[in-house]
Write a protein that binds this DNA or RNA. Structure first.
Lengths: 153, 153
DNA sequence: CATGAAAAAGTTCACCA
DNA sequence: TGGTGAACTTTTTCATG
């Protein structure tokens, strides 16, 4: 079903580092000519191994200088909690990352804000108003050491 | 210095959702013609607002089905701890994300592994062997609810 | 900033090895 | 599967309004 060889992994690696590289340059780097190269790309896309392409945007340059991790626990009695909580979270522009954790109704969020004032507003005007939210814990990172790329090897 | 208008934000949004969109289609969507559109893109790149383009790869399809968050605390006495720890982390293919947290010598990692066996190997053969690592706590997410995009608004 | 045309570059396809 | 070359599309640049 998958059958990825070394060349496919090289292609994935190159496209992960620069999605707008031309097929010509890409084909030279992976040691192929352009045609089979673009064929392989289309196969990788159709198999769902490549799921899309996106521009990387420097959030700090747009004014979102702060990241904050927030652990959220939902109240035990709320039965439709997960679905409605997740729907609410997806509508928050501040939340850039959200994981459902093992353990009961535990979420880990990463929120992106301009400053602490905006974070306080996010907490009071949004997060605490979502139905079923019972406890919140925040921690503040200083900087990102590594990130943004998928594991390939 | 920045001077981003509505159209620039639309461009960023479109490129974040599909970095390989053609300039023609993009220009239609943002309500411009292709020439000024590509000029704006180049400006956004040169200002460092767009920092790159990358393919999204489905890690699960490559066999990396599990994510694990790992909190690491470094021993207090290790002075060159941060630099050498970070260098070691950058060399671990399993670590897809790493944040330096506030609080003393605290890191939050996200590691991507095939299964618990590989995770155990990562812990015993890699992480615990890095100089200065004093305590480790793991938590396992069930699924990602939201993620992968930068905040724009 | 829009338009339109021309030049350059990139992509895709049929066909052969 | 990979290579070649032709047909096609897209991108870039420029003159003009």
């Amino acid at each position: 079903m998958l059958d990825l060889d070394e060349i496919d992994l090289k292609i994935l690696n190159e496209l992960q580092e620069d999605a707008r590289i031309s097929h010509q340059v890409l084909s030279e780097r992976v040691g192929l000519s352009p045609s089979p190269c673009s064929r392989r790309i289309r196969i990788l896309e159709s198999k769902g191994i490549i799921t899309g392409y996106s521009a990387h945007i420097d959030e700090r340059k747009l004014g979102f200088a702060m990241n904050i991790f927030v652990s959220v626990k939902l109240a035990h009695q709320v039965d439709t909690g997960l679905v409605s909580f997740e729907r609410a979270i997806r509508l928050c522009p501040e939340v850039v990352d959200c994981w459902l954790m093992t353990g009961n109704r535990d979420y880990l969020l990463r929120v992106s804000v301009r400053d602490l004032d905006e974070f306080e507003h996010f907490l009071t005007a949004r997060l605490t108003r979502i139905d079923g939210v019972s406890s919140i814990e925040s921690s503040i990172p200083i900087r990102r050491v590594k990130g943004g790329m998928s594991r390939l090897t």
